[in-house]
Nucleic acid binder design. Sequence first.
DNA 1: AAACTGTTATATCGGGTTGATATATCGGAG
DNA 2: CTCCGATATATCAACCCGATATAACAGTTT
Lengths: 218, 218
Amino acid sequence: MATGTNSLELVVLGLLKEQDMHGYELKKRMTESLGLIMHASWGSLYPALARLEAKGAVKAVEARPAIPNIPMTGSLGGERAVFRLSGEGPRGSRNKKVYGITDIGSALFSAMLNNDSEIDEKGFAIRLAFANHMDSEKRLKMLRDRRDLILERVKSSRRNSEKKRFALEPYVELVLEHFRLNNSSDLAWIEDLIAKEESSIQTPETEIMVSQEVQDNL
Amino acid sequence: MATGTNSLELVVLGLLKEQDMHGYELKKRMTESLGLIMHASWGSLYPALARLEAKGAVKAVEARPAIPNIPMTGSLGGERAVFRLSGEGPRGSRNKKVYGITDIGSALFSAMLNNDSEIDEKGFAIRLAFANHMDSEKRLKMLRDRRDLILERVKSSRRNSEKKRFALEPYVELVLEHFRLNNSSDLAWIEDLIAKEESSIQTPETEIMVSQEVQDNL
DNA sequence: AAACTGTTATATCGGGTTGATATATCGGAG
DNA sequence: CTCCGATATATCAACCCGATATAACAGTTT
C-alpha cells in the first residue's frame, strides 16, 4: 500500500479534472500556475502518469479538437500525419498521449485530498490549493491540524535553542529565527483562514472570500 | 559524479567538525537544532555516512569490526552477539560507530559549502547556517544569487497569475499569494543580510553581527 | 530547399530520499 | 526478574530529481 498521499498524483488528477491534457502540457501548467508551491520533473511525472493509468485513474483519450493540423505544403506532410494517426491508440497528430480522468480517478482524487495523514509543507499547500473540492468540515480539520503542528514545531525549536548547552554555529540561530518568523507568519495566515471558515459555516450561504487586503505589500 | 552539493553530507561534515559523533547522535543533533530547516531519515543518514567513509571524508574512531552479512533468516543471532562482544570497550562498549572528520572531509566540506550550483530553499538555508566557514566574498555572492532567484520567481509567478486565461481553482490564488508574501519576506531578510555583509566588508575588523532587532515579534 | 534553431513531446537512467520495518542492547521502574 | 522505553545500526520498496536521449515539428535564415 502506498504510504499516505502522493502529492504529485493528487496534482495530476486535480489538473485533469479541469481538462484533458498530455504530460508536457501538465508540466507546463504546473510550473506556470503552481511553480511557487511545487515542481515536477520528467522522471517523476511520466512514472506518475503510468501509475495512474495502471490504476485506471486516468486513461488515454482522443486528442482534443486542436488547431487544425493542415499541411501547408502539399501532400507529403499530410501523408505522414495520416500514417501516424493509423497507429493504435488515441493519439493526436504528434506523438501525444492525451489523458483524461476517469470515475476511479475522481474517487481517488477525493480520497487523497481527504486523507488526513499528510503532514509536510508541500502536501499541505497542495491540498489547500484544491480545498474547494473538500467539504467545510474536512477543510477546517486540515487547517487546525496544520496550525497545531506548526505551533508545536516552533515551540520545540525555541525550547531547543534556549537550552543550548554548546555554542552553535553563529549563523544557525540567525537562520532558525527567520524560519520561526516564517512559521509564525504561516500560523497567523492559517488562523485567519480558520476564522473565515468558521464564520462561513455559521452562515452557510456565504461565498468563499479570497482575501483582498493582502495586496499592499513589498 | 554526484550532482552538485549533497546537503545531507554537508550537514554531517559540518556537525562532525564540532565533535565526533555516531549516527544516532547526529540525527538527534540535527532534529534538535536544525529541525526547522531540514530533517534526515535513517534511510538517508546511514548511507550518507557510508558514502563519506568510502570517500575517506570521515572515519570510524571507535569502530567495532563490521558484522558479516549473515542472512537474517538464519539462526546465527548468537554468533553475531558474541562477535560484537569481542571488541575493545572504553566506556559503554555498545555497538556504536563513532565517526570523526578527516582532512579530506574538511576539504570536502569547504568545497561543498562554496559550490555555487545550489539553488533550492533547503540547500540555501543549510549553507547559510554554516556560512561562518565561508569567506565574506562567497557569502555575499550566495546571498545575491539567492536574492536574484527569488525575485525572478516571484515576478514570474505574478506574471502568470495576472494573465490567467482560465479561472483557476479558487484556493490556488490564495495559496500563491501567501507564498509570494513569504518570498517577499525572505527577500527583505536577505537584502538585510547583504547590507550588513557589505558594511562589514568596508570595515574589515568588524565582527559578524547576529541581528538583535529580530527578537520582538509574534 | 536545405540547414539552422527552438519548442513540443515522451521516455529512461543512476543515484539519492522517504517511511517503514527488523534487530538488538542498555538503563531504569516496578 | 521482567517489562519498557531509549539507544543504535541497518535494510527495503517505492519514489523523486536532474540529466540525458530521441524525435517531430515550426519558424527563420541561408
